[in-house]
Amino acid sequence: MSAAVSTALQQGLHSCRTCGLLSRPAHGEVEGRCPRCDEALAFRKPAALQRTWAFLIAAAVCYIPANVLPVLTTTTAAGAESDTILQGVILLWSPTGWPLSLIVLIASIMIPIGKIIALAFLLISVQQGSIKSNEQRVRLYGMVEFIGRWSMVDVFVDTYTASLVQLQPLMAVEPSAGLVFFAAVVVLTMLAAQSFDPRLIWDPESEQEVRHA
C-alpha cells in the first residue's frame, strides 16, 4: 500500500457497509448509525476475528462428520448401501471416469478444507499483526469468498439425484446425515468468510505508516 493512501479509519470516519456513506462518528461515540440508511456503523466489522473464528471452528467441527458419515444411501435390489464422499470418489475412479472423480474430490473434499485452512491462516496472520504479502492475502480472501458458493454443487447434485432416482422398489437414492453436515460446512465457511473484515489485513501496515509519519 502506498503511504499516500489513507484509510477512513485514519481519518476518523465511518464507512457505511450498506450504502457506503462516509460519516463522522457522533460526539463521544466511537460507533453510531448511518445518517442515510440507519445502518449500524463501525470502523471495522464488529468482533470480526471472533466471529470468523467461531464460524471457522464450527465448520471444522462439521467437516469431520461430513466426511465420515455417508452422504447418500442407495437402495437397490441388492440391498441398501451407504457411501461417504470419499467412497464416492473411489467408486467413480476408473480409467475413463477419473476426471469426474477428480471434480468430486476437489469440490467436495479439497475446497472445503482449503477454505478452512486459508481463513485460519488469514485470521492468525491478522492477529499477529503481520504486514507481509498483504496483496496475496487479500487475493486469497477474494478467492475464498468467490469459491464459497460453488462448494454447494455437491449438495445440489446429491439432492437432485435423491429426488430424481426414486424407482421404488428397484432403486432409490436418499440423502444421509453426512449431507447435512457437508451443507453446514459450506454455509459456515461462507459465513466465516463474510464475517472476516479484509480491511484488517492492511490495518497494521497503515498503523505503522501513521507511526512513522
Binding site: P25, A26, G32, P35, Q50, A54, I57, A58, L188
Partner: peptide, 27 residues
C-alpha cells in the same frame, strides 16, 4: 456528517460462539 448515536452493547464474548459450540455438540 456526524453519525447518530447508537446504544452500545458491551459484547466481550460474541454470541457467535454459540455456533461452534452447537456444531461441536451435534458432532
Amino acid at each position: 456528517p456526524d453519525s447518530k448515536i447508537r446504544s452500545r452493547r458491551q459484547t466481550r464474548l460474541s454470541l457467535v460462539w454459540i455456533i461452534p459450540i452447537v456444531a461441536a455438540i451435534i458432532g
